[in-house]
Design a protein around this nucleic acid. Structure first.
Lengths: 362, 362
DNA sequence: TTGTAAGCGTTATCAT
DNA sequence: ATGATAACGCTTACAA
C-alpha cells in the first residue's frame, strides 16, 4: 500500500499531527523533531495526498479555464497567460474545451463539476444574452468576452466598439475610402461581431465615409479558412475595395491568403488590419496590423478577480473590467517594419471599472 | 452548509448507500426508490463531491499533460488533440507548462503531484538522455518526443530521421542543389535537431549532393523569431542558397518572413519546407510545405497507452510507438495550391511497434 | 511544542 | 434491493 502520514509518524516516533505540521511548514517545531520527520519522509518516499487534503480543506487550489478551442491561437495565448498568472498565485489550471457547443457551455454552468475546482474562468461563445440567467451559479465565476453582459458574475471584456472604431480610422487615415469588413454576423446584436461592426460604422462616420453594405462580408466561425472564404467572396463580388478590417487575426491571415492568391498587393492595393494581436501577425508576409485587446491584462485580471471571489466570500458587488486596447500598425497598413510598430492607445482611460448594479448572491 | 448524500438520503427516506447506487447508475434499484432519490437530488440541488469520491476510489479520472508552452502552435494543437482523446475516455486533462525549464521538468517527475492525477503525458524539452534515470517513476507515464530514449516508460515519438530525409529529398527533387538548414543545434546528439539534421545529411547523400557546413544555420529555441534570425544570418553570410529546410514550422514561418524582407521569391528563388504541419502553414503566403509527424495519432496513442497503464497495472513491457509521417508539398516548394497538396507518406510501415527490452517496474 | 480524536463526503464490505 | 459501518488520508480543534 501507499505511504501515508501515519507511516511517517510511526517511523519518526511522532504523531501524525507533527508530520502534518512539518509538511505544511508550521514554524514551531523543535529542529530535532523536524529532522526526524524529514528523514522519515525521505526514507519512505512519502508524498502528500492532495485529494485527502482537498476533501478536508474544501479547497482544491485548482481553477477551471473554459475556452472554445486551443487550436485557435487567441485562446492558446490566453490559456498560456492564465496559466502563468494562476501559477503565481499557487493555482493549477484545468482547461475545458467547449468547442463552442451550446450543451457543453451549459454543462459548465450547471455545477456538475462544482467540486472539481475552486472556480471557473469562462469564455462563452455559444451562449448569448438570452442565457444570462444560467450565469447565476453557486461557485466563483469570472466571465470573459462579449457574448453576455450583466451576468451575476465578474466580467472582463474589451473595448470592442472603441477599438474597432480606432482600427477603421487607422485605415481611413491612410486615405482609404472603400473599407471592407470580413467576418460580420448579420443580424446579431451581441457578441464581438456586432460590437466590432458597430465600431466600424462609427469609424466610417467619424472619417466622413459612407456606409456601404456591399462592403460587409459575413463569416460564421472566425477561422483562417472562413476569413479566406469571406475575403474571396468580397473580391468575387466585384465591389471596389482599398482596405479591409478583418474582425479577428485568424480571418485577417486567411484574407491575406485570399488576396495573395489573386495577386493583390498588401498594402499597395489593399490595406489590411486584424484584431487580437496574436503572435502570428508579427511574422506574416507582410506583417499584419492589428488591435491588441490587452490579452495579458485580461488574463491577469480574470485570475485576480477569481482569487478574490474564492477567498473573500461574496460580499462585494460584481465588477466589469475593460483593459486598455491599442492599435498596432505594421506593414499591412504601410506602417513601420519589425520592431518599430506604430502603436496608438485606444481611448486612454477607457478601462474604467464599472461596478455593476447587480449585487452578489453566489 | 453544502448538500451531501446524507441529506439526500434523509429526504428520500433511504440510506446513503442507496443514494450512492442511484448516482452511480447501479441497475438493481426499485423504480419507486430511484424516483424518490432523484426527486430529493433535484429538490436539494445535490452535486456529487468529486474530491470525496477520488479519495475513496484512489482515482481522479484526470491526467496531466506537460508541454513546454501553449503559445507554440504545435503544442497548442497537440493539447487540443490530447484533450479530445482523453475526453472520449472520460478523462479530464490538466495542463502543465514547463517553459522548457529544467527544474520544472524534474519537479514533474519527482512525484510531488503524484496524487493529483492518475498519470502523466510528458513532452520534455530541457531534459536529455543523461536524465533518463529520472523517468523511473512510480506513476503511469507516457513520454513524448525525441529528448529521451529507452526511458522506463511508454514512448510515442516520430520518425525524425526518415521524415527529414524525405523533406530534403523533396527539395532536391525540384532540382535544388544548395539546400540550407535552419534551426540546427551544433554538438547535440539527441533531440529533434540532431535527428532531423541527420536526416538532412542522409537526404543530401541520397540525392548525391555534398554536405556543406556553411549551409547549416543554428537557432536556439524554435520560435518564429529565431527562425527569422537564423535565416537572416544565412542570407547575410553571402552563401549561395536555393532551398531551405526549417526544422520546424514556426522557424519556417520566420524564415519566410526574413526572405520576404529581402525580396527573395519563394519558391522562385528559394524553395522552403518546414516540419510539424501546424494549421498556420496552410494560410501563409505562399502556403508552406511541411512534414506531418502524425500529431493526431501521437495524441491518441499517448492517451491510449496511458489509459492502459492506469487500468492494467504494470504487467506489460514498455512500448515505443512511431506514427506514420508524411511530406505535404504546398506552394513553397512549387507544389499544388490549396486543397490539392501533394502528399507523400514517409517510409510506409515505419510505425513499427518496438517492444523495449526494459521491463515494467513502476 | 506535540498528541488525540473527530470529521471532510464518498465508496465498499458485509449483512439482511 | 437496501442498510449499517468502516475506511480513504488528511487537517484542525482541543488537550496536555
Amino acid at each position: 500500500m501507499r505511504v501515508t502520514m501515519h507511516d511517517v509518524a510511526q517511523r519518526a516516533g511522532v504523531s501524525i499531527k507533527t508530520v502534518s505540521n512539518v509538511v505544511n511548514g508550521y514554524p514551531h517545531i523543535r529542529p530535532e523533531t523536524r529532522r526526524r520527520v524529514e528523514e522519515a519522509i525521505e526514507h519512505l518516499g512519502y508524498r502528500l495526498n492532495t485529494t485527502a487534503r482537498n476533501l478536508r480543506t474544501q479547497r482544491t487550489d485548482m481553477i477551471t479555464l473554459a475556452v472554445p478551442e486551443l487550436r485557435l491561437p487567441y485562446f492558446a495565448e490566453l490559456a498560456d497567460s492564465v496559466i502563468r498568472s494562476a501559477e503565481e498565485q499557487g493555482l493549477t489550471v484545468l482547461i475545458e474545451q467547449t468547442g463552442s457547443v451550446r450543451e457543453r457551455e451549459i454543462e459548465l454552468l450547471d455545477g456538475r463539476r462544482r467540486h472539481l475546482t475552486d472556480g471557473v474562468i469562462f469564455s462563452p461563445l455559444a451562449l448569448g444574452q438570452d442565457d444570462v440567467g444560467l450565469f447565476e451559479v453557486d461557485f466563483p465565476l469570472v466571465v470573459l468576452g462579449e457574448r453576455v453582459f450583466d451576468a451575476p458574475a465578474d466580467h472582463v471584456t474589451m473595448n470592442n466598439v472603441a477599438a474597432a472604431r480606432a482600427a477603421t480610422l487607422h485605415l481611413a487615415s491612410l486615405g482609404r475610402t472603400r473599407i471592407a469588413v470580413v467576418g460580420a454576423h448579420e443580424g446579431e446584436l451581441v457578441g464581438s461581431a456586432a460590437l466590432r461592426t458597430e465600431g466600424y460604422r462609427q469609424g466610417l462616420a467619424a472619417a466622413g465615409l459612407p456606409y456601404d453594405p456591399a462592403l460587409v462580408s459575413e463569416a460564421g466561425l472566425w477561422h483562417r479558412s472562413t476569413g479566406s472564404e469571406s475575403m474571396a467572396r468580397l473580391l468575387d463580388s466585384g465591389v471596389e475595395i482599398d482596405a479591409v478590417f478583418a474582425l479577428n487575426d485568424a480571418m485577417a491571415l486567411g484574407a491575406l491568403h485570399a488576396l495573395h492568391a489573386r495577386r493583390i498587393e498588401v498594402p499597395g492595393d489593399v490595406a489590411l488590419i486584424g484584431f487580437d494581436d496574436v503572435d502570428d501577425v508579427r511574422y506574416s508576409v507582410p506583417t499584419l496590423s492589428s488591435v491588441d485587446p490587452g490579452r495579458e491584462q485580461i488574463a491577469r485580471t480574470a485570475v485576480d478577480l477569481l482569487v478574490e471571489r474564492i477567498a473573500g466570500g461574496d460580499e462585494r458587488p460584481f465588477r466589469r473590467v475593460i483593459p486598455d486596447s491599442r492599435v498596432v500598425g505594421r506593414e499591412s497598413t504601410g506602417d513601420a517594419a519589425e520592431g518599430m510598430e506604430k502603436v496608438v492607445t485606444v481611448q486612454p482611460g477607457g478601462n474604467e471599472e464599472i461596478v455593476s448594479p447587480v449585487s452578489a448572491t453566489a
